[in-house]
């Protein structure tokens, strides 16, 4: 009987201890240079982790009208990287037939990304 108690005790320890994958808050500041793009109405970002998705854009903004669009996003993620692409006018993906952009999160919980639209 003692042996069974030990087994059940061990099982309870496994189940009750921290057995759920931890997530971490990570703030990412995206900025994309749109000065080489002639005509467009909106620029958005799509990616593989919430709040990004591959179905809907998160729209970037250009408050000082310098052609560089920015957006700050907070991820609550267990992963150390994300994949994403920028999208023009809600439908036109950059880097056609090329791999997604990949961003490794920094350990300081704050990461900056800057790039040029349609250029790796």
């Amino acid at each position: 009987m003692k042996r069974f108690r030990v087994i059940f005790g061990l099982l309870a320890c496994i189940v009750c201890q921290n057995c759920v994958q931890p997530t971490f808050k990570q703030e990412v500041n995206f900025s994309i240079d749109m000065r080489n793009v002639d005509t467009f109405n909106t620029v958005g970002i799509r990616g593989n982790f919430e709040p990004l998705s591959w179905k809907e854009d998160l729209i970037l903004e250009d408050p000082n009208s310098d052609g560089i669009y920015t957006k700050s996003i907070v991820f609550d993620s267990p992963f150390t990287s994300i994949e994403f692409k920028f999208v023009k006018d809600n439908k036109e993906y950059e880097l056609k037939d090329k791999a997604n952009r990949r961003l490794e999160f920094s350990k300081e919980r704050k990461t900056n990304f800057s790039g040029v639209f349609d250029q790796e």
Binding site: I14, C19, V20, Q21, P22, T23, P78, F79, T80
Partner: peptide, 21 residues
């Protein structure tokens, strides 16, 4: 988390993925 779980899942052994609970 199993030994054959894909590495990009970032799961430790016997750890359940964050969204499942």
């Amino acid at each position: 988390g199993m030994p054959w779980t894909a590495e990009d899942r970032n799961l430790d052994l016997f750890e359940v993925i964050y969204w499942f609970p």
